[in-house]
Design a binder for these strands. Structure first.
Lengths: 69, 69
DNA sequence: CTTTAACTAACACTATAATGTGATTTTTTA
DNA sequence: TAAAAAATCACATTATAGTGTTAGTTAAAG
């Protein structure tokens, strides 16, 4: 997955769970500012920030060998 | 996957490809210092740094719904 | 062995991610 | 449609990730 797409996935998942940005930001203990930028691919988040958000969303990171396209 | 395990996976993959830390650091345009800490889970890397390393290793990130254990 | 390279590590400096604040725009809902 | 909430955005400040340097330790190669 392209790293810049992660934000889109997070936004999608957040919506699916019926959470607002303030909701998720609160639950993940992250500022709305950071979350907002992350969802739009406008920042370069740390793994820790990403991890806290993914936990709330019930998602986890997996590494895979890159697929040939 | 536990985020702190990513470093171990990266180290494993690097070894598999027969690369040294200086090799990988050079190819990914990252300092050995950062790579060294990352492999040991002693830092909190940005997605950009992680991405550059994963690219060289032929790996990519995928998000999955968390598995019940 | 001994020499060289890789790995580990501490530390100061620089770059930048995260935050807090406040404002504007868009969307929702009552 | 009016009011409230959510989303978007800019900007200054704070926290911290990444780097460069240097050095000690371990591993590998000759």
């Amino acid at each position: 997955m392209l790293v810049k797409d992660i934000g889109g996935q997070i936004k999608e998942r957040r919506k699916l769970l019926g959470l607002t940005q303030p909701d998720l930001a609160e639950l993940a203990d992250v500022s709305v500012n950071t979350l907002y930028k992350l969802e739009r691919g406008q920042n370069n988040p740390t793994l820790d920030i990403l991890d806290r958000i993914l936990k709330v969303l019930g998602l986890e990171i997996h590494l895979q060998i890159r697929q040939l396209k």
